[in-house]
């Protein structure tokens, strides 16, 4: 059973993202939406945590949320995949369950 973890909080403001990473299992997927999109960027205080997660999990960012916050896709951490809403839907199909980290 694989789970899609949906995070919507900036890792610089709240612990939800960190908590998500602490509870996601190998083979799970993590999708950053809304304010969490800022966590997808490389060379931040948080990027090492994402890089560590990428070893056994898939990590995605919602492209619309990234762009809305002035961040281009060439800024995102290598290995993180940008998806649109259709891709978001596909992720909920590919995983058995979802959990939102509010």
């Amino acid at each position: 059973m694989a789970m899609l973890h949906i995070v919507n909080k900036s890792p610089f403001e709240r612990v939800a993202f960190e908590s998500c990473l602490n509870h996601a299992s190998a083979g799970d997927s993590i999708l950053m939406i809304e304010d969490a999109a800022v966590g997808a960027v490389k060379n931040t205080r948080f990027s090492e945590s994402i890089e560590a997660a990428l070893k056994d999990k898939s990590v995605y960012v919602l492209s619309g949320d990234l762009a809305a916050r002035g961040l281009s896709e060439d800024r995102i951490i290598t290995g993180v995949t940008a998806v649109d809403y259709a891709g978001f839907v596909d992720l909920t199909v590919d995983n058995d369950t979802t959990q939102s980290w509010l």
Binding site: M1, M3, H23, A24, S25, D28, T97, T98, Q99, L102
Partner: peptide
């Protein structure tokens, strides 16, 4: 502990968070 919690979460079918 945290690892067990992650394992319990992984078994769920509907997760509703608040």
């Amino acid at each position: 502990d945290r690892a067990d919690m992650a394992g319990i979460m992984a078994q769920q079918e509907v997760v509703i968070s608040f």
